[in-house]
Simulated assay, not measured.
Amino acid sequence: MGDAATARDASKQDTSDRIVLAAEVEFAERGFEGAGMKAISQRADVSQALLHYHFGSKDHLYAEVVRRRSKLINEARLDLLAKVDLGGKEAIGGILDALFRPPLGPLGGDQSYTRIFGGLIVGRERDRALVREYYDPTAQKFVEALQAALPGSSRKTAAHAYTLALGALVAVISRDGRVERLMGQQELRGIDEVLAGLITFAEGGIRALAASEKSEN
């Protein structure tokens, strides 16, 4: 490929990336229904014609925002999960750290994508379909890891544990200041403090679920 063709491809990719990042902010601030293609094109500093050329419709652009960000999050999650000793004493904490850390950190898109992420879990069919496509395959691996780390537990309990842990993540991921208000603490807490609280809370609940299942059998 010649230098000119390479430059054109790079420019096209830069434009695509700029549009997706602009769309991420617009969807986060206004939701899917409130976000407009014109507003997104203005944020990205491209024409609406060029925006439609790259992504076609608002539905396709929204799906691309979720696809790109979920890929970053899930790759990081699986990398961290692969390092967890599922037979060790710290397995549950390690699994939860792998689940929580990427979406809370820089790969999670800061406050822009975190608002979208929270909405995906409780969203409409469009959101549920995107979750099935882009998040469920990774979720299955975490359910399997939880079951392996809880000897004698069923797939049902492991899936329930994963779902409840994810709910705890959604409760804090927007970082809208509510937790700080309730604590009487004005400054935003750091990721390590947020993670420590989430892991402690979720691990306690998961172990209680597993113990409850054993007592019933």
Results as ranks from 00 to 15, higher is better:
Glu90Lys: 12
Ser47His: 05
Phe100Leu: 07
Gln186Arg: 13
Glu29Thr: 14
Glu133Gln: 15
Ala76His: 10
Ala22His: 07
Met1Asn: 02
Arg69Ala: 05
Phe27Met: 03
Arg30Ala: 10
Leu188Cys: 00
Gln42Ile: 01
Met1Tyr: 02
Asp110Glu: 12
Glu75Met: 05
Arg8Asn: 08
Asp3Val: 12
Ala171Glu: 14
Ser70Val: 01
Ala168Leu: 12
Gly34Ser: 06
Gly204Cys: 02
Ala91Gln: 07
Ala161His: 10
Met1Ser: 11
Gly167Asn: 13
Asp97Lys: 13
Arg68Gly: 01
Leu120Gly: 09
Ile173Gly: 06
Asp97Arg: 15
Arg207Gly: 03
Leu72Pro: 00
Gly34Tyr: 06
Ile92Thr: 10
Ile121Pro: 00
Val179His: 02
Ala49Met: 09
Ser215Gln: 09
Leu78Met: 15
Asp59Gly: 04
Glu75Pro: 00
Arg18Pro: 00
Gly94Glu: 14
Asp127Phe: 01
Ala159Ser: 13
Lys83Cys: 00
Val131Ser: 11
Gln13Phe: 07
Tyr62Gly: 00
Val84Thr: 10
Gln147Gly: 05
Ala35Tyr: 06
Ala82Cys: 00
Gly205Lys: 11
Gly197Leu: 01
Arg8Glu: 14
His52Ala: 09
Gly108Arg: 06
Pro102Lys: 07
Leu120Gln: 03
Asp79Gly: 07
Leu198Phe: 04
Ile116Lys: 05
Ala39Thr: 04
Ala63Trp: 01
Leu99Glu: 02
Ile199Tyr: 01
Ala161Trp: 10
Leu107Lys: 09
His52Trp: 02
Gly152Phe: 08
Leu146Phe: 06
Ala10Val: 11
Tyr53Lys: 12
His60Ala: 15
Val20Glu: 10
Glu33Pro: 00
Arg43Tyr: 11
Ser174Leu: 07
Asp9Gln: 15
Pro106Thr: 10
Gly36Thr: 13
Gly105Tyr: 04
Met183Arg: 15
Leu107Pro: 01
Val131Ala: 14
Ala5Asp: 13
Ala5Val: 13
Ala145Lys: 05
Leu61Ile: 06
Lys214Thr: 13
Arg77Asp: 06
Asp85Trp: 11
Tyr62Gln: 03
Leu198Arg: 04
Glu29Leu: 11
Gln185Cys: 07
Lys12Asn: 14
Lys71Asp: 11
Val84Ser: 03
Gln186Val: 15
Asp136Lys: 09
Ala210Gln: 08
Leu120Arg: 02
Phe32Met: 09
Asp127Arg: 01
Ala39Gly: 10
Ala202Phe: 03
Lys156Gly: 02
Gly108Met: 04
Ser16Lys: 15
Gly88Trp: 13
Ser153Ala: 15
Leu80Lys: 11
Phe201Thr: 15
Ala158Asn: 12
Gly119Trp: 00
Ala158Tyr: 08
Lys38Tyr: 07
Arg126Pro: 00
Gly167Cys: 10
Ile40Leu: 07
Val84Asn: 02
Ser47Asp: 09
Ala28Tyr: 04
Tyr134Ser: 03
Leu188Gly: 00
Leu169Arg: 04
Ile116Phe: 04
Gly152Cys: 08
Val46Gln: 02
Arg178Met: 14
Arg115Asp: 05
Ser174Gln: 13
Ala159Glu: 14
Leu164Thr: 14
Gly109Ala: 11
Thr6Ile: 06
Ile92Ser: 02
His52Ile: 11
Gly177Thr: 04
Met1Gly: 14
Ile199Ala: 01
Ser215His: 05
Arg69Met: 12
Phe32Pro: 00
Asp85His: 10
Gly31Leu: 05
Val122Glu: 03
Thr163Gly: 08
Pro137Ile: 13
Gly88Asp: 13
